[in-house]
Design a protein around this nucleic acid. Structure first.
Lengths: 353, 353
DNA sequence: CTGAAAGCGCTTACAG
DNA sequence: CTGAAAGCGCTTACAG
């Protein structure tokens, strides 16, 4: 680098690194920096006149108060840390959208971090949030085990878990009511006249899978329908796995007439596989999903599914956190009900027995 | 609240607000806090012995260095602010995923904020980022006008724009090459034998729409095909608008045999509308999209589209920012090529003229 | 109503 | 190799 370039760089760096401070504007206004600080926060201690004058000067000189300096003395940062598996997952994105909305409303900024489903990375992320001195943490759909939850319980930072594995009793959480919802969707299928209903689950042993499966079984049992092990088939929560699992179902001597899918992504794959096999939904097979992703209403046929109110859930998590920060006691665990959204992918079976 | 509760709250607050500091561990180790600071950053000035001892003590006492205090003295925060329209948009989510990945790699944390396409809110967001003293800002797909871009150009914080309206020459940017890509997709349709190709655009006057339309026209012109105004129809970038726009096309006396859609979401709606009309894709009409969202490969039929490498683009934006921070000059504007992904939604027209 | 002083938790010259 | 001192940009008792 030439000397001239080096100089330019140095100048540039300097200008970048030295925003104007409270002292600068104190000098301009010919008052102490305490007065500036008070005026800028509209303290009643300062005369209306000086307050206004200082505001004007601050405005003109494009002054931006340093939140980092302020945080050091106030001992809070007005930030939240959010950890998601990956923000590319539409469910996570919906939740974060809701959190961000509420956070902004309360004057908080949000740190976002992906765990990539890697427990070690998740721990590093939480650690970095501690160092950033976030006021609170929200973790979404973490699969990190019970050990980790205990660790997190010992955290000195308030935390709220959203749709997490093993929320434990030590932390606040907001969870979708999986078993109730799944039972409802299964009952819907039964009421339509289906007797051979399959469950297309998730092979990764998610707690949500266990719960949804449980709701499915309850509904079957309540209706006096027998449980058929060959109707239980496992995907991976994504279209790819849904296709493979559906292929297994289609290969059966006696095919189910309806399939309850673990989530919408699985249902998308299942639907595709049915088509590949030259069959129709819901003509030959009815399909239900879980989540109600934005695209599900545009699937062909539009998907009947259980709607998780992602944005509201995110909002609730943020609001719970705010309560925690204020020290007011609030519900330990919020269960939210999914809404059954009836669309085109479910219909009565072709021939009743 | 009872007195007892109040006490509990006070204790709790205290424990939350007072993490252990460098002074505490200095006391434990019986050294000065300067020594602790140096040992913790593995300064060669400190003996291996003391360094190790201090590390052990810090570990045991769960010490977490305060990034906020550190930031105050080092004058950088190792944070980036990202502004997206809404993180619920799958394109934004993909980009943020890439940014986050690269950021973590470089030891940066990311602040995320939604602008909700509201210029005022966008300005507030940027302002809050300034106060947070972020080291840099990345703005994705902002529609905020040229005035705003100028304002942002005067910002003392390095900024990089991704797929933005009017990037201007004052700021770094990474942009998809819309016109080249669109021309390629249109040419693909032409090579298949289509002569009546419609353009289903976006009514909000996005620059990307203008550019994609331009690529479409270039390709038509290069092939000597005449441009038909009635084949230009406007959606809203979402399935809903795609449906309506496609309905207009289907109502035409002479229907197009292929439709180039502004983006995948529009194509999803268009596809649905074709189905509603009892027609087939690609049998009766070929369809192409833009983006290659995750779901596009699972559409029925799988969508032929132009792939924007969202994660890589996010990564590039972050890397550009890092370069900027290091003061090294880098390309002003990076143009990235979209990849034409051939799938099932395009085929030769039924009857050639 | 205003100012001087102390302090938040670090880093980093400056001494020794 | 280690420590005392100054300072980053704020807020907030304490005086006047």
């Amino acid at each position: 680098m030439s000397t001239r370039n080096a100089n330019v760089c140095a100048m540039r760096r300097k200008s970048l690194a030295n925003p104007i401070s409270i002292k600068d504007i104190a000098r301009m206004a010919d008052v102490s920096h305490s007065t500036v600080s008070r005026a800028l926060s509209n303290s009643p201690m300062i005369s209306a006149q000086t307050t206004e004058r200082i505001h004007r000067i601050a405005e003109q000189s494009q002054y931006r108060a340093s939140e980092v300096a302020r945080s050091l003395v106030t001992r809070h940062t007005r930030t939240v840390g959010i950890v998601v598996t990956t923000i590319a997952d539409p469910f996570a994105a919906g939740v974060v959208d809701g959190i961000e909305d509420a956070a902004t409303e309360f004057g908080f900024s949000v740190f976002l971090a992906n765990s990539n489903a890697d427990p070690e990375r998740e721990i590093r992320v939480v650690r970095s949030f501690e160092e950033r001195r976030v006021d609170g943490i929200i973790v979404t759909s973490s699969r990190a085990g019970a050990i980790y939850v205990r660790m997190i319980g010992q955290l000195r930072i308030p935390i709220v878990l959203l749709n997490n594995q093993h929320p434990s009793e030590y932390v606040q959480s907001v969870m979708i009511d999986n078993v109730e919802a799944s039972a409802r969707a299964t009952s819907h299928l039964i009421e339509l006249g289906h007797q051979n209903i399959a469950y297309l689950g998730d092979r990764y042993g998610e707690q949500s899978d266990t719960e949804r499966f449980s709701g499915y079984r309850h509904a079957l049992q309540a209706a006096g329908l027998c449980f058929r092990p060959e109707f239980i088939v496992l995907g991976d929560g994504k279209p790819e796995g849904g296709m493979k699992a559906m292929a297994q179902l289609l290969a059966l001597a006696e095919r189910p007439t309806a399939v309850f899918c673990y989530n919408d992504m699985s249902a998308l794959g299942a639907l595709r596989q049915v088509r590949v096999a030259g069959l129709q939904v819901p003509g030959d097979i009815s399909l239900t999903g879980f989540d109600d992703l934005y695209i599900s209403q545009y699937m062909q046929p539009a998907l009947t599914t259980l709607r998780q109110p992602m944005r509201q859930m995110g909002r609730m998590a943020m609001e719970t956190l705010i309560q925690l920060l204020k020290g007011s006691a609030s519900a330990h665990s919020i269960k939210v009900a999914a809404e059954l959204v009836l669309r085109e992918s479910t219909a009565p079976p072709k021939r009743r027995k």
